[in-house]
Simulated assay, not measured.
Amino acid sequence: MTHDLDARFALAEAIARKAGAVALDYFNRRETLVIETKRDAQDVVSIADREVENLIRAAVADAHGDDGFLGEEYGLAAGSSGYTWVVDPIDGTSPFVNGMPNWCVSIAVLHDSKPVIGVIFAPCFNELYAAAAGKGATLDGRTLRLDPSRTIRNAVTGIGANNYVTPAFVGKMVETLLEAGGNFIRNGSGALMLAYVAAGRLVGYYEPYMHAWDCLAGYCLVTEAGGWHHPFPVDGDQLTKGAPVLAAAPGATDDLRRIAGL
Score class of each variant (00 low, 15 high):
residue 182 G to E: 01
residue 164 Y to W: 13
residue 129 Y to W: 11
residue 46 S to M: 03
residue 140 D to W: 10
residue 153 R to W: 06
residue 232 F to I: 07
residue 91 D to T: 00
residue 213 W to I: 05
residue 178 L to Q: 11
residue 156 V to H: 03
residue 100 M to E: 14
residue 66 D to E: 15
residue 248 A to V: 04
residue 98 N to R: 14
residue 96 F to S: 03
residue 70 L to R: 05
residue 238 Q to K: 14
residue 39 R to V: 12
residue 17 R to F: 08
residue 179 E to A: 14
residue 179 E to L: 12
residue 60 V to Y: 14
residue 201 R to P: 00
residue 241 K to L: 09
residue 233 P to S: 11
residue 22 V to M: 03
residue 17 R to V: 15
residue 33 L to H: 07
residue 184 F to N: 08
residue 118 G to T: 08
residue 109 V to G: 01
residue 155 A to V: 03
residue 36 E to A: 13
residue 217 A to G: 08
residue 103 W to G: 01
residue 182 G to N: 04
residue 23 A to S: 08
residue 32 T to A: 13
residue 152 I to S: 04
residue 130 A to H: 10
residue 150 R to K: 15
residue 37 T to N: 09
residue 229 H to K: 10
residue 139 L to P: 03
residue 246 L to D: 06
residue 189 S to L: 03
residue 162 N to K: 09
residue 251 G to F: 02
residue 74 Y to G: 10
residue 121 F to P: 01
residue 15 I to M: 11
residue 198 A to S: 09
residue 156 V to C: 08
residue 182 G to M: 02
residue 168 A to E: 15
residue 93 T to W: 08
residue 19 A to I: 11
residue 168 A to Q: 13
residue 134 G to F: 01
residue 93 T to R: 02
residue 177 L to K: 08
residue 72 E to W: 11
residue 159 I to V: 15
residue 135 K to T: 08
residue 233 P to E: 10
residue 82 G to A: 06
residue 102 N to R: 10
residue 66 D to G: 10
residue 152 I to A: 01
residue 99 G to N: 07
residue 164 Y to T: 14
residue 49 D to S: 02
residue 85 W to Y: 15
residue 107 I to P: 00
residue 220 C to Q: 11
residue 84 T to W: 01
residue 57 R to T: 10
residue 132 A to L: 03
residue 253 T to R: 15
residue 246 L to F: 13
residue 137 A to V: 05
residue 80 S to C: 02
residue 59 A to E: 15
residue 212 A to H: 02
residue 257 R to G: 02
residue 147 D to A: 09
residue 236 G to S: 05
residue 123 P to W: 08
residue 18 K to Y: 13
residue 221 L to S: 06
residue 241 K to T: 09
residue 30 R to N: 03
residue 167 P to I: 03
residue 175 E to A: 14
residue 12 A to C: 10
residue 64 H to V: 12
residue 114 K to G: 00
residue 212 A to K: 02
residue 238 Q to T: 10
residue 241 K to P: 01
